[in-house]
Design a protein around this nucleic acid. Structure first.
Lengths: 177, 177
DNA sequence: TATTGTTATACTCTATAACTATA
DNA sequence: TATAGTTATAGAGTATAACAATA
């Protein structure tokens, strides 16, 4: 296929030798070469999912995708150090401090002293944090189901995730989403 | 399939009733439920492509994905107004001002007066802008080829883009990538 | 010397609100 | 009144550099 199916030039060229647009020109804009680029679609998709999260999940639980990601990683690795969390989230260790401050201020996690290395803080979920994590998890699964499952089949979602995983093989980790 | 192939719990459970991690624990962290979420993979992928762009394209042409996106949209819609560009990029019209200032300072685009509506600026590429656009376009196609084509076949990329387009149907536009 | 957590600082990207000049 | 561009401002999110405590 020499012309990908997402090439907007088709639409563009169909609109008969148009003049440069003016104030009264309400035709949809052309995105040029962008629709041929995977990066463009990844950006749009990520933005769409993020926005839906902020609409559907955040008002319920006052949580951002990034903070939930941290909660989840802490829960799945009880006692990990802040530096380890930062590495897992793909950010500098200085960046993680304020985020952890927030989760701690809300009593969702605790910084516990490490017995064998006094420099380290062992991050753990509080009971309230565990309860919140369970609630948010359900909410997020619903959010994804609502947004994604209405447009793609279960098989297609698995195909999509599989392709994205292969694209990211060897890449550094990243915060969520 | 009740357990998706990307479920990291498999790895987790295989590591025999582990103690909470301590300083000497160098096992890879678990991401909990995140690998089941499309948003997680979209975020990772978008970050990976963005990083590669910044490594491969930016040093050559001092351009960001966002600025190239604007250049491309202006080129494909000569004479569009700043508000129209902002809408196409999915940002507020106040956000676009400084970005356009940059492109104009580099003599890649020009704000031309509109004859019929003196409030409007018609955005156009300069000859230097057209040349830069052509060069950057080639560079970006190479960057995508290098990053994506080494991991996915042409068919797989088309499948991926097709699925992402369906995911975004009805969503607002977005800057690139 | 090296590492962990922290702080100060700066930079980018973003939106909101208010302004001006036009319509 | 409403719209196009602009400015001031504020809030996220990020990194770098330097610091104290500890290894």
């Amino acid at each position: 296929m020499s012309r990908p199916m997402n090439d907007r030039r088709i639409v563009r060229l169909a609109s008969k030798d148009r003049e440069p647009r003016d104030a009264s020109d309400s035709a949809p804009v052309s995105y040029g070469v962008l629709p041929q680029l995977l990066g463009f679609h990844l950006r749009r998709s990520q933005t769409a999912v993020f926005s839906h999260f902020m609409e559907f999940v955040s008002p319920e639980e006052s949580i951002t995708p990034g903070l939930f990601g941290m909660l989840e990683v802490i829960a799945a690795n009880e006692g990990l150090a802040q530096s380890e969390l930062a590495k897992a989230m793909g950010v500098d260790r200085s960046t993680i401090v304020k985020a952890i401050d927030q989760l701690e201020a809300r009593r969702l996690i605790a910084r516990r002293p490490s017995s064998d290395d006094k420099r380290r803080h062992r991050l753990c979920l509080t009971p309230a944090g565990k309860a919140a994590r369970a609630r948010i998890r359900e909410l997020i699964l619903n959010h994804e189901a609502l947004l994604v499952r209405s447009r793609l089949s279960t098989e297609e979602v698995q195909t999509l995730i599989g392709l994205l995983e292969r694209l990211c093989q060897g890449a550094q980790p990243a915060s969520f989403p």
